[in-house]
């Protein structure tokens, strides 16, 4: 009986010690002193062989019961203490998540780049391919080859920078069209984006600006095809609700020629004081027409076999309408307050 009493006393002490333990190390010390190799419990279990065999089963059973109880309490306490420790650790690791991040710098593409990409992507679906050409051009390709002879009043439409005798900074991307036609047989379906230059500078004119010209030459191409193409472009650029309007006009490289307006994307023509369309309901976006037969002669195509349409737009004009940019000159200053507003769609060239 003495052993039973001793076991129970030890167990009570152990349970008490477990309860008193406040740290995982303390708890481990409790486990060692009560259940370890040198503990009273182990000693008693070792001496079990010396007691009356008749009592042995009962004492053994009691010892196992008490040991299991202590183990269970130890585990329970350990879990509790670990939970407390973890929660203290988590608390200590808490951050003010509203402090600033270590964000890498933002990059962006120029609105002219993204606008050119938009147009290329839209018209690429119809079968147009992008091509480019040099910015310093021969006067012949810039003018004569696109039906603007020397001393023709149409030269007044473009004040040109001269680089030397017969050499100009191209005043339009039309020479690229001629280069393309001269270098390949028809059909031709091309877009020519790029920088162009004219001696002109104010809020709506810049000595350097960008154009995209399109050219489609095939066996039987009509004004109706031109209208359909430009309608598709305008709707994809500005929204399916917009309409286009063609007005007769004159560009030496086309005949018939047209100026093309798009209905105001802001007011749809309903606001007489609209800041975008000034109440007219229409915004001029490009010039277009049926390719003049003279161009085919120069390109070496037979004008009897082919016809084509061509159009040209100012990229800045389109970008200003798309983004609501008030002043053309902002495009070329490199002011990061401007550039940072166009985070760009980083898609590929198409």
């Amino acid at each position: 009986m003495m052993i039973k009493t001793e076991l129970e006393r030890l167990a009570d002490q152990a349970l008490q010690a477990i309860q008193n333990a406040n740290a995982l190390e303390d708890l481990e010390a409790v486990r060692v002193s009560y259940l370890g190799k040198k503990s009273g419990f182990t000693e008693i279990m070792k001496s079990l062989g010396q007691i009356d065999p008749s009592e042995r089963p009962a004492v053994g059973q009691l010892a196992n019961q008490l040991k299991a109880k202590i183990d269970q309490e130890l585990t329970q306490k350990k879990n509790d203490l670990e939970a407390v420790a973890l929660s203290a650790q988590l608390k200590a690791q808490a951050l003010d998540v509203t402090l600033p991040s270590r964000r890498p710098h933002g990059g962006s593409l120029h609105p002219i780049t993204t606008t050119v990409r938009r147009v290329n992507a839209i018209l690429g679906r119809l079968g147009f391919e992008v091509t480019t050409g040099p910015e310093v051009e021969t006067e012949f390709l810039n003018f004569e080859a696109v039906n603007i002879p020397k001393d023709h009043p149409a030269r007044d439409m473009q004040d040109t920078f001269f680089m030397g005798p017969g050499i100009v900074l191209r005043s339009q991307t039309s020479p690229v069209q001629m280069r393309a036609m001269q270098s390949q047989p028809w059909p031709v379906r091309i877009l020519c984006p790029g920088a162009v230059y004219r001696c002109d500078s104010d809020a709506t004119h810049s000595p350097m600006f960008h154009q995209i010209e399109g050219l489609w030459v095939d066996r039987q191409v009509s004004m109706a095809d031109l209208k359909g193409t430009l309608d598709f472009l305008a709707k994809e650029l500005f929204g399916s609700q917009v309409k286009i309007r063609l007005r007769p006009s004159y560009f030496p490289f086309v005949e018939p020629g047209a100026e093309v307006d798009v209905s105001c994307m802001l007011c749809g023509g309903k606001n007489p004081t609209c800041p975008v369309c000034k109440g007219t309901g229409w915004l001029e976006i490009l010039g277009a027409g049926i390719v003049h037969p003279r161009l085919f002669e120069i390109a070496g195509y037979n004008p009897k076999d082919v016809s084509g349409f061509a159009f040209g737009m100012g990229v800045e004009r389109i970008a200003m309408l798309l983004h609501g940019i008030p002043d053309l000159r902002l495009m070329f200053h490199g002011d990061q307050r401007f550039l940072a507003q166009f985070t760009g769609v980083f898609r590929g060239s198409e």
């Binding site: 890498p104 710098h105 933002g106 990059g107 962006s108 593409l109 120029h110 002219i112 780049t113 990409r117 910015e135 920088a195 230059y197 000595p207 350097m208 495009m331 070329f332 490199g334 990061q336 550039l339 940072a340 760009g344 980083f346 898609r347 590929g348 060239s349």
Partner: peptide, 21 residues
């Protein structure tokens, strides 16, 4: 050329356009 623009934009730079003269 277009992919080069994309890379430099993604490296945190802003594309600018200056006059060619």
């Amino acid at each position: 050329l277009e992919r080069t623009k994309d890379v430099f934009a993604s490296l945190g730079m802003r594309e600018t356009m200056s006059f060619a003269f």
